[in-house]
Measured scan of single mutants.
Amino acid sequence: ALNRGDKVRIKRTESYWYGDVGTVASVEKSGILYPVIVRFDRVNYNGFSGSASGVNTNNFAENELELVQAAA
């Protein structure tokens, strides 16, 4: 299972961040479909780089994520 702070690569092909590595911000335990919230260094097309207006978190299912580096 994934944990907060883990570095993960995104495998959801239609995602803006496909192939990117993000950090797990939190994992919901309530049984929702996309329980893993991942935070990225770059914002998506809703904002400009360096601006706070873009979105830099997204929810994924565990099977859409590949663990790159476990949290220390």
Rank of each mutant, 00 (worst) to 15 (best):
A1I: 13
A1H: 13
A1W: 12
A1F: 11
L2P: 03
L2E: 04
L2K: 01
L2S: 03
L2H: 02
N3D: 06
N3M: 12
N3F: 09
N3T: 14
N3R: 15
R4E: 14
R4P: 12
R4S: 09
R4T: 12
G5M: 01
G5W: 03
G5Y: 02
D6C: 05
D6T: 02
D6S: 03
D6K: 02
K7V: 11
K7P: 02
K7G: 00
K7E: 04
K7C: 12
V8L: 03
R9S: 06
R9E: 05
R9G: 04
R9I: 09
I10F: 02
I10K: 02
I10Y: 03
I10P: 03
I10Q: 01
I10D: 04
I10S: 01
K11Q: 08
K11A: 06
K11E: 04
K11Y: 05
R12P: 03
R12A: 07
R12H: 05
T13S: 10
T13N: 08
E14R: 05
E14G: 12
E14C: 09
S15A: 01
S15K: 03
S15Y: 04
S15T: 02
Y16H: 05
Y16F: 14
Y16E: 06
Y16I: 05
W17Q: 01
W17Y: 05
W17R: 02
W17F: 04
Y18S: 03
Y18W: 05
Y18K: 02
Y18C: 04
G19H: 04
G19D: 10
G19A: 05
G19R: 03
D20Y: 09
D20L: 08
D20V: 09
D20F: 07
D20N: 06
V21C: 05
V21I: 14
G22E: 01
G22H: 01
G22Q: 02
G22M: 02
G22W: 05
G22R: 04
T23N: 02
T23F: 06
T23G: 00
V24Y: 00
V24H: 01
V24G: 00
V24M: 01
V24A: 00
V24F: 03
V24T: 01
A25K: 08
A25Q: 15
S26M: 10
S26G: 14
S26T: 07
S26C: 13
V27F: 14
V27W: 03
V27H: 06
V27I: 09
V27D: 01
V27N: 03
E28Q: 13
E28N: 10
K29C: 11
K29W: 08
K29M: 10
K29V: 10
K29R: 10
S30I: 07
S30V: 10
S30Q: 09
S30Y: 09
S30R: 09
S30C: 07
G31P: 11
G31A: 12
G31W: 12
I32P: 05
I32K: 09
L33T: 10
L33K: 10
L33M: 09
L33N: 10
Y34L: 10
Y34W: 08
Y34G: 04
P35R: 07
P35K: 10
P35H: 13
P35M: 15
V36L: 04
I37K: 12
I37V: 12
I37W: 15
I37H: 09
V38I: 04
V38C: 02
V38R: 00
V38W: 00
R39E: 13
R39P: 01
R39Q: 10
R39N: 07
F40N: 00
F40Q: 00
F40H: 00
F40K: 00
F40E: 00
D41M: 05
D41P: 05
D41V: 07
D41G: 05
R42M: 04
R42W: 06
V43R: 04
V43W: 15
V43A: 07
N44L: 09
N44P: 06
Y45D: 15
Y45T: 15
Y45W: 12
Y45V: 15
Y45N: 15
Y45Q: 15
N46F: 08
N46H: 10
G47S: 11
G47W: 05
G47K: 05
G47R: 03
F48M: 14
F48H: 14
F48R: 02
F48G: 15
F48C: 15
S49K: 05
S49R: 04
S49H: 07
S49P: 15
S49V: 09
S49A: 09
S49M: 10
G50T: 10
G50W: 07
G50Q: 08
G50E: 10
G50L: 06
S51T: 11
S51H: 09
S51P: 12
A52V: 12
A52T: 13
A52F: 06
A52W: 08
A52D: 15
S53C: 15
S53K: 07
S53A: 12
V55Y: 09
V55E: 09
V55M: 08
N56H: 07
N56L: 06
N56T: 09
N56S: 08
N56Y: 11
N56C: 15
N56R: 07
T57K: 07
N58P: 03
N58G: 15
N58R: 06
N59S: 13
N59Y: 11
N59F: 07
N59A: 14
F60A: 02
F60V: 03
F60L: 02
A61H: 09
A61T: 05
A61I: 04
A61F: 05
A61V: 03
E62F: 15
E62V: 15
E62K: 06
E62D: 07
N63T: 13
N63H: 14
E64Y: 01
E64A: 01
E64P: 00
E64G: 01
E64D: 05
E64S: 00
L65C: 04
L65F: 02
E66V: 06
E66R: 02
E66I: 09
E66C: 05
L67Q: 02
L67E: 02
L67K: 05
V68Y: 04
V68E: 02
V68C: 05
V68I: 11
V68K: 01
V68Q: 04
Q69S: 10
Q69H: 10
Q69K: 08
Q69N: 11
A70D: 08
A70N: 06
A70E: 14
A70S: 12
A71K: 10
A71C: 12
A71N: 10
A72D: 13
A72W: 11
A72I: 15
